[in-house]
């Protein structure tokens, strides 16, 4: 069974249709990207999937169970880490557990066991502004993971990082996904990032946004850094660019 299914979702704001008839699925352990220009309705789609807004049509299924319009089932992560500046890293990360009604002490212990895995050892008592951008994103990711261990929705999570940090965090993310068996739906407008990370890529095009193409990236995982410079990589990029352009006309 698919981890997450979005079936026939349409959504309008103020009479203007933002996304139309979106269909997609995410399998267990898969990383699927949604690639499209900014303002193409990606955020609208994420708000629907996370249950923050109800679609006009269509439904969202988590492991076969209907969760349309129900917040609290899958969470997402944004480009801004949105760590609360007045909470220490461990208390920030523990937030989803506290919201579910766990006691502070128990939540801290549970959270603490993941710090090494996420490359944050020794940072429990630090405040967000004391960490680097990459570390903050990893902390935000840990928070997302602690909220829901199955599906992570990531909305351009790495786009504010510099190139070097970004490529390091890509490598790290693929590893951690493998380790913790996470499935990821990833929104980005960076083609390189999409090709490098994804098992499949959906192209979101037009106005209102619709899914026009699905591209399979056959390169095996774990992926080596050299994949970025290979001929196949370039071919994938070319194909995506041409299809994005074609549907633009």
């Amino acid at each position: 069974m698919s981890e997450l299914v979005v079936a026939g979702v349409s959504k309008s704001f103020d009479g203007k249709e933002i996304i139309r008839d979106i269909n997609l699925h995410l399998e267990h352990g898969e990383l699927v990207s949604l690639l499209g220009a900014s303002g193409g309705g990606k955020t609208t789609l994420f708000n629907v999937i996370s249950g923050l807004s109800r679609p006009d049509q269509g439904s969202v299924l988590l492991e076969g169970e209907e969760i349309t319009g129900q917040p609290g089932r899958v969470s997402y992560m944004l480009q801004r880490d949105l760590l609360l500046p007045y909470r220490t890293i461990e208390d920030n990360v523990a937030l989803p557990l506290l919201l579910k009604g766990e006691k502070k002490k128990a939540a801290r212990i549970k959270v603490g066991s993941h710090f090494a895995e996420f490359g944050l050892e020794g940072k429990q008592k630090k405040y967000p502004h004391q960490l680097s951008g990459g570390m903050r994103q990893r902390a935000a990711l840990l928070r997302t993971y602690l909220f829901s261990e199955k599906v992570a929705l990531l909305d351009e999570p790495f786009s504010a990082l510099d190139t070097l940090t970004k490529s390091a965090i890509h490598q790290w993310y693929l590893n951690i996904m493998e380790q913790i068996q996470l499935s990821t739906l990833f929104v980005t407008h960076d083609i390189d990032e999409a090709v490098y990370l994804s098992d499949r890529i959906y192209l979101l095009n037009g106005n209102p946004g619709t899914i026009t193409d699905e591209i399979l990236i056959r390169e095996k995982k774990p992926r080596r850094e050299e994949f970025r410079l290979s001929q196949e990589f370039l071919e994938y990029k070319k194909e995506i660019l041409s299809r994005l352009k074609l549907s633009d006309q």
Binding site: S50, L52, G72, V74, S75, Y76, L78, L82, L99
Partner: peptide, 18 residues
């Protein structure tokens, strides 16, 4: 209060009081 932060908490199932 930051809108994105409040939305994030809502997506985690937080109620108004939380």
């Amino acid at each position: 209060a930051d809108k994105d932060t409040m939305n994030l908490l809502r997506s985690m199932g937080a109620d108004r009081l939380q």
